[in-house]
Design a protein around this nucleic acid. Structure first.
Length: 306
DNA sequence: ACACGGACGACGAAAAGCAC
DNA sequence: GTGCTTTTCGTCGTCCGTGT
């Protein structure tokens, strides 16, 4: 049936290596990704020698070293936060760097030494949890058909967790951090530890501190958007009734704004917890808060239309 | 004990043919 | 033309043996 041509072996592989391979630039022999020009040349020769019995392994080694070098020396790699740094990197005292585009879970050092690595997983988990909660990713036809084909096989393996979870989203920083780590969240404010002098009120069953530093910061940084447009739908109302309607509308807007603040606070808390390696709990909290907020917003919009 | 590296299995992607 | 199926390759993570 199908007869796919070899894509990257033989001459094609040689071309790929010639055109794309990048030797690690470090000159420090202590660097774990160090490769001398001589070694590189030998490896390159083995990898591109069609008669060599070691072609495949040399090719794989070359690509591995190339990748490790890229991660460590170029913008393809990003240094993971301290909380996500893997054990080998921590003990070796080197920067723990993973692929920026999330093409791999293991850090450069673990890749180099074939060690299992959680650096990428830890850093990515927050974002992935968020992505899964916010949208269902439809399977592509290719994926769907493959899933069907290997369905039985997959079922048999379901007992153990999949070794890899790919996602094209950037893992550099958990989403909650991206969303919330503005100046407002990096200040002295700490959830649950605000001074007792702030007045509090219940919103969505949650205690909200009015005029908290976070609130002010959120306003200052534009996180808080309070709509002020006028609604003329109540034109037949009397003046008093119109005023009452406006008051109620303002109240709803205020409540909504407070609710959004609470969501932002939860997300900031999620970011903080993530930094403490408590990613799941933090993300779940934030997701829950977001869901409650969206629900309330929807209800409010409906009541406005009615 | 730890670091290192080869071997292997799993999975996704790509390419091409087939069925409708 | 579009979608499905099949085949092959590349990449990744893990296991396990070897060296220090």
């Amino acid at each position: 049936m199908a007869d796919p041509k070899p894509r990257s072996h033989g001459n094609a592989a040689v071309e790929v290596l010639r055109n794309e391979s990048r030797r690690p630039k470090t000159t420090d022999t202590k660097d774990f990704w160090y490769m001398s020009p001589e070694e590189w040349t030998t490896l390159f020769k083995d990898a591109t020698d069609e008669d060599s019995t070691t072609t495949k392994s040399a090719y794989q080694k070359l690509r591995l070293l190339e990748k490790v070098g890229s991660l460590m020396e170029t913008k393809e790699g990003v240094t993971v936060p301290a909380f996500a740094t893997c054990k080998p990197c921590k003990s070796a005292g080197v920067a723990c760097r993973v692929a920026k585009d999330s093409s791999g879970m293991a850090c450069a050092k673990c890749l180099r030494h074939h060690a299992s690595c959680e650096a990428g997983k830890l850093m990515k988990r927050g974002l992935q949890t968020w992505a899964e909660a916010t949208k269902e990713q439809p399977a592509t036809p290719m994926k769907a058909s493959k899933k069907r084909r290997i369905g039985d096989q997959a079922d048999a393996q379901r007992a153990k967790p999949s070794p890899r979870t790919r996602d094209s989203s950037s893992p550099e920083v958990p989403l909650s951090i991206v969303r919330s780590c503005s100046k407002a969240t990096t200040g002295d404010f700490k959830a649950g530890s605000a001074p007792a002098t702030f007045s509090e009120k219940k919103i969505m069953g949650l205690t909200v501190r009015e005029s908290s530093p976070y609130t002010l910061s959120a306003i200052a940084t534009g996180h808080l958007r309070i709509k002020g447009e006028h609604n003329d739908s109540a034109g037949v109302l009397t003046f008093a009734a119109e005023r009452e309607a406006k008051r109620l509308k303002r109240q709803r807007e205020d409540e909504l704004a407070e609710a959004e603040i609470e969501v932002l606070r939860a997300e900031a808390n999620a970011a903080r917890k993530a930094m403490e390696a408590d990613v799941f709990a933090a993300q779940s909290d934030a997701e829950l808060m977001r869901a409650i907020y969206e629900r309330k917003k929807l209800t409010d919009e409906r009541s406005n239309v009615a």
